[in-house]
Design a protein around this nucleic acid. Sequence first.
RNA 1: GCGCCCUUCGUCUAUCGGUUAGGACCCCAGAUUUUCAAUCUGGUAAGAGGGGUUCGACUCCCCUAGGGCGUACCA
Length: 446
Amino acid sequence: MTAKVRFAPSPTGRLHVGNIRTGLINWLFASGQGGVFVLRIDDTDRERSTKDYEDGIEADLTWLGMTWGERYNQSARFAIYDAAVERLKAAGRLYPCYETPEELDLRRKVQLSRGLPPIYDRAGLKLTDEDRARLEAEGRKPHWRFRLEGKRVTWEDLARGHSEVDTASMSDPVLIREDGGYLYTLPSVVDDIEIGITHVIRGEDHVTNTGAQIEIFEALGAVPPAFAHTTLLVGADGLGLSKRIGSLSMLELREQGYEPLAVVSHLARIGTSDPLEPAASIEALAGDFAFGKMAHRAARWDPEDLAKVNAAILHAMPYVEAKQRLAAIDADLGEAFWLAIRQNLTMFRDVVGWAAVVSGAVTPALSDEDRPVVEAALDLLPATVDETTWSAWTGAVKERTGAKGRGLFMPLRRALTGMDHGPDMAAILPLIGRDKAARRLAGETA
RNA sequence: GCGCCCUUCGUCUAUCGGUUAGGACCCCAGAUUUUCAAUCUGGUAAGAGGGGUUCGACUCCCCUAGGGCGUACCA
């Protein structure tokens, strides 16, 4: 049986690092074995769902390279959920309740204060027809709960191993709200059955839900899929993902200039035993994927690590891959330029700064100690410069001034680039050109 | 409050009763570059605390501490 997994975001916001990891793990798991990745838009909440967010989610997935084989909108599938509801009602597993949210909240608080578990007391189950008629005459409308069997539900979790949830220790879940709207649980289970999902892969915040959901699968006569609950992410401080990072959207990461492959490599490898290095492609990542490699403790999402992965990708990026993007910055930026400066990039946009060093205007920042070397260098600068110039030229400067090592090269670097770090000077000198080099050595802004 | 999960170098992790406790990042050193960066090589560095079980515990059990998640008419 080929694997079929689903990623089910709600279009009530953009994808962020917290939920994209779940999507990515699903994608990697499915792709690694030639399975199907289903994109399911959980838009049963029509109030909060928007088409813009839906488009945004697709744009984010596409940017990351996470293609989907099938996609569904839950908002188009209410008839299927309605049918499931009828079956559950007929089986006596769905019962109406009339408490208001305030009443329930109060009841929970009382239970808690008495040291009792805050579990719904199933008052709705004890209602007679007359009780219901009276309540509805008062204008109350029911919400519907699924009657749990109250048993130890067990499953072999792909990420956590043998798992158990005692559904006797939880409240019967509300499946249908007072206003008739569906909560996430029922449509999710029904779709998993209808679409033929074989593996439900999600964050471990859903572990307890799984107990109830397995009961719902069974109540609908379905064999539950396999489950995998992965650890959640934490921030660089090791504590829970902060609001800032937890809500860091793919859109922001994209605007900050990260390479999609960096985002994906980083997200796929943190919290695993694989070294944190760039993958050749998202497909290669899928080939390496295994739940067994994932630690059972929260994975740390640190932007500094992401930046390192991003830099490593740029450092090794061949010219053909960079060509178009380079041209978008400046048509004159060729292969020699790329090869000379890529090692100095953290973000692709850093190219702009190096392009300015080569073809823009640079104001040399020189100290008094730098001057003798720079003046000699200007005097000795050959009439033409190419890749071979640097060595002979600086050799001559060394001979005349006695400067060597750092004392020889830093003044020249500062004079020619205006900076004290940067690409290999032998490669960058011919890119700057003889004319600009001479003027910069003379102290001009050129 | 209750339930579930977690706790190994500074960081991310490997180990599934007997290891010189391994790798990656950071850091340090060396090489290379007659410079910085990049690159290559090498190195420093670890089992939350306390009890057990065992010939032997990072590994199994219990307790404590710390952290995460859940306990919604959110997903």
